[in-house]
Design a binder for these strands. Structure first.
Lengths: 305, 305
DNA sequence: TCATGGTCACAAAGATACCTTGTGAGCACC
DNA sequence: GGTGCTCACAAGGTATCTTTGTGACCATGA
């Protein structure tokens, strides 16, 4: 799946830091390794790519054009890795004195890592110590319970219903998009607009019954005559793959197909007369504002966009 | 910059394959390693995260909820890594008998890897041998020269002017977006709309003179009274970082800030009365259609979205 | 001219992590 | 009970990475 010519994450990071600092040695000390190790790693990377990436001189190093190119690509990998890091850090954080939160699956998977990265860089820029966050990912109902019982200070839920007794604030929306593979007839530019009736009458690729996206879709199409699904799969990744391979249209969370749409693996279809938007809320117990401290900062950050 | 708790790319890939196959051994053989190695890698990863990721049983393995979460995050990293792989593969490919292309920097950095991934999966799905592509990244004028001289079969250029004697086809647009950091006054929801005059009168963060984005910006604002730039930087990454840190507004290629906008590190501002769109074209020599074979397929794929 | 501080590369030795081979145990199906 | 599948444990070799030590080159300033 992934070729043998792709360097390590750490090596990619090294290249990015070299591009920023303009020196192998400076980059090495920033990453906590010796200059020799950095030099060696860069050479290994150049062997993988087959072209020089760094132009060494006696007073510093610049990237070659090829190196600049690789750095641009590596940046995207590292951005994603940083979100992964934020997620893992939230899973790892010690419980004492830190921020405990719970989030529904959609939010935990697609939005929270970005918010945590943003919050952390924001805090670092202001000279604060970054908050350690511990996260639990579960369904919206359970999130509400955890907030209610005080097990977590803050929750993130989806769905229209306000959990009773909890305060909330809108932090975003999760839109289901209808997508098809690029070989599907709907993907022709002139046909990217279908009616809700047409969609309902078309055999779709769907998630299993009970999943959040399936529920939203069924509720939205409840009044229309429905075709039976062509495929029923248990993960969003499987749905994306099936649609890309041409199995049929599907409705998928917008965040999950961001990259697929950008690379053209999937094509978005506009459905007229259908609202597939869910509201995403931060919820907490007590006063009209979130608990003082990091919880309030996180909510403010998440709601800011 | 990137924490010590982030697993290797190969380890992440292993986890994803385990999630698909439902078995450590099957995943191992798919990746060409032994079952024991896979088991060990997963255990290392679990030590990094601090929680079990895989629920082992005597007849197969499933992911734990935490594991599912990590896979979702890992998927995004691997998607980016796959684009990096496609780019590196294009840089490495042997020259004989394969497809040689040239592309302007913007396209090579942000779009071409996605197209190559898409083309490859498309070919694999149809049972074809994937085409090896060799790429040169340079500026638009040089790309036109390479196509004209026959050194490459296909080029990708930006800008309105049609290189003389070459045929072309529109494959996308590159829009410059005006962005600010989340702490900037314009980022308030009510102020995300400014006029071209206001923008021109505001000190901006800009790229160095001669760069493509700078040229487009200056041409678009040519008739208006201009403030002097607050910062002049030589890479898009530096501009993004400066804007995120609050240095001021900047105009950046839409593809370069896709992730920043999604995570809220940057906020997009709408500028009324200003068109910052460039057209991106595939160009070739000869007949009205691209050269038969992989070149034509690549153009068709790129133009399809 | 010479000293100093900066850059990077080469070489050898150590530590560490990784992978493979070999083995064992549990479960399901025939 | 045999066969095939699952995964885990242990031992050994190998490869890689890292550190230590050294050398060459350049710019700056005395």
């Amino acid at each position: 799946m992934i070729g043998p010519h792709v360097p390590d994450l750490r090596a990619l990071e090294l290249l990015v830091v070299v591009s920023r600092t303009g020196s192998l040695g400076a980059a090495a000390s920033e990453l906590g390794i010796t200059q020799q190790a950095a030099s060696s790693r860069v050479r290994t990377m150049e062997a993988l790519v087959g072209e020089p990436l760094v132009a060494r001189s006696k007073r510093g190093s610049e990237l070659t054009p090829t190196g600049e190119l690789v750095v641009q690509w590596a940046d995207r990998v590292l951005d994603a890795a940083q979100e992964l890091d934020a997620g893992i850090a939230a899973l790892r954080a010690d419980r004492r004195g830190h921020l405990d939160i719970a989030a529904s699956l959609t939010i935990a998977e697609h939005l929270l890592p970005g918010w945590l990265v943003g919050l952390r860089t924001h805090q670092v820029q202001r000279g604060q110590q970054p908050t350690e966050v511990r996260m639990t990912a579960t369904n919206s109902a359970r999130v509400a319970e955890l907030v209610e019982s005080g097990d977590v200070a803050l929750g993130f839920v989806e769905g229209p219903e306000a959990p009773c007794g909890l305060r909330r604030r809108l932090v975003g929306t999760d839109e289901l998009l209808v997508v098809v593979g690029p070989q599907h007839p709907w993907s022709l530019r002139s046909r990217r607009r279908v009616s809700a009736e047409t969609l309902a009458a078309t055999p779709l690729v769907v998630r299993e019954a009970g999943s959040g996206t399936r529920t939203v879709l069924e509720r939205a199409l409840a009044d229309l005559p429905r075709a039976t699904p062509v495929l029923e799969l248990s993960s969003t990744a499987a749905v994306r793959a099936a649609v890309a391979a041409g199995a049929g249209p599907a409705a998928v969370g917008a965040h999950a197909v961001r990259d697929d749409l950008a690379t053209g693996r999937l094509v978005r279809i506009t459905v007229t007369g259908l609202d597939l938007t869910r509201r995403l809320h931060a919820v907490w117990k007590g006063g009209p504002h979130p608990p003082e401290g990091p919880a309030r900062e996180l909510v403010a950050w998440a709601a800011r966009r």
